[in-house]
Amino acid sequence: MPSTGRPPRRATPRRYAMCRPEHFAVAYEINPWMDASVAVDRDLALAQWETLRRTYTGLGHEVDVVPALPGQPDMVFAANGGVVVRGRALGARFAHPERAAEGPAFAAWLRGAGVAVHEPEHVGEGEGDFLVVGERVLAGTGFRTAPAAHEEAARVLGVEVVPLRLVDPRYYHLDTALAVLADDDVAYVAGAFDAESRATLERLYPDALLVEDADAAVLGLNAVSDGLHVVLPAAATAMAADLDARGYVPVPVDLSELLKGGGSVKCCTLELR
């Protein structure tokens, strides 16, 4: 096989926090994916979630389960519960009152897991808008997380924070428009960002995987990578083929029921670093 010029991909064991969709429903509409008139099959959502959890453990990763709170149908989207770097977390403060109770619940659980949690001063929705790429954090704004939260994250976590502005409401969180593949590698859909942010991404990641709108529109970029295996929505078939060509191992899963709430693989997964 001819050399690609890229170093071989290597998996690194990870520790994730997840929350079962015991109370999952589309009871309100706070993103373009939600339609409260569409029925939700909670049993199917639970089964799909369990497949994702077993996928992680089958790949050698550790999964902790955060207790689900009644009346919090979006708590399954654990990535929004904070961002953790080197054992320290910036907690979550949600833009919409419907999700406000999730912030303290995730903060309490993280403290119980030995993580030092900073109570946020500004609206910031965890790994929904703060994505760790090596020693850098890419930070989304435009729909949920406030720009002031970017400065707060840099101060609290002690990392470089690079702001990116989202402009397409379908991609209301950064983790719906950009996937972290490795410490120096990302994939994204260009149309989700304003011109300045696209220029920033092109400068920082000139070899990034550019994903077509058809795969982004099924939340294909809402993916989780361990450096080798990329767990992603099964419907993102072209993205999976592109990942394979780059030396990654795509691991497709079906989270179509949870997509009704506007989330997929990454939304369900908070990494504990």
Rank of each mutant, 00 (worst) to 15 (best):
P97I: 13
V156M: 13
V162F: 08
V167F: 01
E151F: 02
L110K: 05
H118F: 11
E102W: 05
R99E: 10
A105E: 15
P97N: 03
V133K: 03
F130M: 13
E160K: 05
A105T: 12
R170L: 15
R99N: 10
L174T: 11
V137F: 01
W109S: 00
E152Y: 04
E102D: 07
A154T: 05
V159Y: 07
H96I: 02
H122M: 02
L181T: 10
V159T: 14
A105D: 05
A95Y: 02
E121A: 13
R99D: 07
G128M: 07
L138N: 09
A153I: 14
G87V: 10
G103V: 05
A179I: 06
R155D: 15
R170W: 11
F106K: 01
G128K: 04
A182S: 15
F143D: 05
G103W: 03
A113R: 14
V156D: 14
E152C: 09
D175K: 06
L174N: 09
W109V: 04
G140F: 02
R99Y: 04
G103K: 03
G134T: 12
L131N: 12
P169V: 00
L157F: 09
L138D: 08
V115A: 10
A148Q: 14
A154P: 03
G112K: 05
A101G: 09
G91F: 11
V117K: 01
G103R: 03
H96M: 12
A116S: 15
G124F: 10
A179L: 02
A139P: 05
H96F: 14
T145D: 07
V159A: 08
A89F: 00
D129A: 13
D168F: 03
G87Q: 02
V137S: 06
L131A: 10
T176C: 12
V123F: 07
A139H: 10
A154R: 14
P169N: 04
D168N: 15
E121Q: 13
H150N: 00
A154H: 00
D129L: 07
V137E: 02
T145W: 07
H96D: 03
A100G: 01
G126V: 10
V123L: 08
R155P: 00
G126S: 07
H96V: 15
L110P: 01
G158E: 09
E151P: 00
L131Y: 04
E121L: 15
V115S: 07
P120L: 00
P163A: 11
R88D: 00
L131T: 07
G103E: 04
L181F: 10
V167N: 12
L181G: 12
L164V: 07
R99T: 12
T141G: 15
V132H: 11
V132C: 11
D129M: 05
G126W: 08
E152T: 08
L166M: 12
G103Q: 02
A149F: 08
E125F: 01
E151R: 15
F130L: 15
H173M: 09
A100C: 02
G87H: 07
G87A: 13
W109D: 08
